[in-house]
Design a binder for these strands. Structure first.
Ligand SMILES: [Zn+2]
Ligand SMILES: [Zn+2]
Ligand SMILES: [Zn+2]
Ligand SMILES: [Zn+2]
Lengths: 157, 157
DNA sequence: TCTTGACGTGTTATGATATTACATACTAGA
DNA sequence: TCTAGTATGTAATATCATAACACGTCAAGA
C-alpha cells in the first residue's frame, strides 16, 4: 500500500511513478508522448484530483494546445493505460499509485484537504459481488468512492 | 428487497411508492408540491435513471417551468428527502425504492437495459469502513455504483 | 387587519464539463 | 520513400449545473 496520507518523500514518490509509467508503456508499446507525460506529471504533483480544465489550463500555459480535447485525450489515454483514475464524484482525475497492478480501487477522498487515496478493494468488491449475485446481477465494473476525513484532518474537525 | 429485476405489478409499485412518499412528507412537514410530486412520478415510471434535462423536458411539456432550475430544485428536494438518489456515473436520478429507511445504497446498473436497482449495502459498507480504517481514514459517505448485467439481460449477452 | 418573513416557483444569464468533426503533423513499418 | 496508423490542434457544439433576481403564496405575529 502506498502511504498517501503519511509523510513521505513526495519527489521520490513522483519520480518512481513516472519511471514505472515509462517502463510499463515501453513494455506495452504504448507511447508516453510529451503531452501525456506532462499530464501524468501534473496529476502526480499532488495526491489530489485535477479537473480536465485545470489540466488544460496548465498545458495551455506551457505551449500545448488550448482546447478541451487536448486535455481529455491525454487523460483518457492515462486512464486506459491504468496510469490514472477518474473520480466520478469530483469530475476529476488522479494519478494511479499502483500502476501495472490491474486493479479497480476504492477511493478515499478527504473532504477537508481533498487528498485522494486508493484503498485495497478486494474484500469490498467481494461483498458487492455477493450482494449483487443475490439479485442475479453480474458486476462487471464498480466504482467505489468514499468521502470522509483523512488521518491528518481528523484533529482539525 | 424490492424486486426491481423481477416481473412485478409496476403500477402498484409506483402507487405504493407515491403513497409512502406522501405519508413521509406529511410526517416531516415537508411539502410534496405539484412539481415535486410530478418529478417523483416521472422517476417512478421506470426503474431507470433520468437526467435532469429529461425531467425538465417532460415538466415543460406539461406546463411547468422550462428552465433547468425547475428540474434541479425538484430533484434536489427529492434527494434531500430520501425519495430519490443521484447516480454519479450517469449524471442522473432514480426514485428510491426504500424511502424512509435511511440508507446509502449500492446501485446496480444494467449496461444493456439501463435498469437501476438498489442492493443491500451493509456488508459492502462494513468492508469499506475496515479497508479505510486501516489507512486511518474515516468514511462519512460512500457512493457505490456497479455496472454489469441484470438477470434479464444475461441471456442476450 | 396589516405586515412581514419564509418558502416555492419562474426566468435570465452564465458557468462547468465533455464530445464531435475535421484538418494537420508525426511515426513506424513496408 | 511511401503509406497507414496514430497523435495533435482547433472550431464548434453538446450536455450538465448553478447564481441571481423577480414574483406569488401563505401563515405567523404585531
Ligand atoms: Zn507522494
Ligand atoms: Zn485530509
Ligand atoms: Zn416497479
Ligand atoms: Zn438489464
Amino acid at each position: 500500500m502506498h502511504p498517501t496520507f503519511e509523510h513521505h518523500d513526495h519527489s521520490h514518490c513522483c519520480g518512481d511513478s513516472l519511471t514505472r509509467a515509462e517502463a510499463l508503456m515501453a513494455e506495452r508499446g504504448a507511447r508516453l508522448t510529451p503531452v501525456r507525460r506532462r499530464v501524468l506529471e501534473l496529476l502526480l504533483e499532488s495526491h489530489r484530483a485535477l479537473g480536465a480544465y485545470d489540466v488544460l489550463e496548465r498545458l495551455s500555459a506551457e505551449g500545448f494546445g488550448n482546447q478541451p480535447p487536448v486535455a481529455y485525450r491525454a487523460l483518457d489515454f492515462l486512464v486506459e493505460q491504468g496510469l490514472a483514475h477518474r473520480i466520478q464524484r469530483l469530475n476529476a482525475f488522479t494519478a494511479c499509485m499502483h500502476a501495472g497492478e490491474a486493479h479497480a480501487p476504492a477511493f478515499l477522498i478527504c473532504r477537508a484537504c481533498d487528498t485522494v487515496a486508493e484503498a485495497p478493494v478486494a474484500p469490498v468488491r467481494a461483498a458487492l459481488d455477493t450482494a449483487a449475485a443475490e439479485l442475479g446481477f453480474v458486476v462487471e465494473r464498480a466504482s467505489i468512492e468514499a468521502l470522509g476525513l483523512c488521518p491528518n484532518c481528523q484533529g482539525a474537525a
